[in-house]
Amino acid sequence: MDVQLEDSVLIKRYVSGDEKALEALIDKHNQRLSSFIYSKVNSRDITEDIFQDTFIKVIKTLRRGTYNEEGKFLPWVMRIAHNLIIDHFRKSSRMPMYDGSNTFDIFSFIGDDKLNIEHQIIKDQIDLDLGVLINELPADQRDVLVMRIYKDMSFKEISENTGVSINTALGRMRYALINLRKIIEQNDIVLTI
C-alpha cells in the first residue's frame, strides 16, 4: 500500500515538472525490472536496451498525460517490458543468424519462412472459420479465450479484467478449448493446412 502510494506521489511530482522524481522512480524499480528482463532475455546488453526502451515509453506516456493506472505503476511498467521482450524475440527470429560452422549456406541468410500464397489463403480461411467457432462459445468462455490468445493477456490480467479468480479464468479457458474441440469434431471440420 505504501509502495503504491509512493509511486503515485512520485508520478504526480514528475508530471508537474520534478525531474528528480523520475530518478527516484527509476532507481526504485531498477533492480526488479532489470532482473525481470534479464530472466527472459539472458543478456545484459539486451536487458539494458529493453530497460531503456521501457522507460522511454513510460516517460512519453507520463509526459503526454495519458497515464491512468493510478497505484499500479510497477505492473504497468512490467507489461510494457513484457511486450518489448516479445517484440525483441519476434525481431530476432527474423534476423539472419550465422551458425558458426565452417560451411557457408546461403539459404540460412536468404531463407523465407513466409507461407506461399496458397497456404496464406488457406490460413486466412482457417482463421476466419475459427473466429466463427469461437463466437459459438458461451460468452464467459469466449471472453477468456479471446483475451488469452488474441490479446496475449496473462491469466492474472484476465482475472482482474473479468472480476473472477485466476482459477475460474483457467477453468473457463479449459472449457473453451474442450468445447471448441467438441464443435470441431461434431461438425467434421478440418482446421489444418
Binding site: 523520475l22 532507481d27 531498477n30 533492480q31 532489470s34 530472466s39 539494458e48 530497460f51
Partner: peptide
Amino acid sequence: ENELKASDRTVKFLLDYSK
C-alpha cells in the same frame, strides 16, 4: 543476477531524454 541493475549510463540517458 539478483543484483542486476541498469547501468548509470542508461539511467543518465533516460534522465537527459526526459529533460
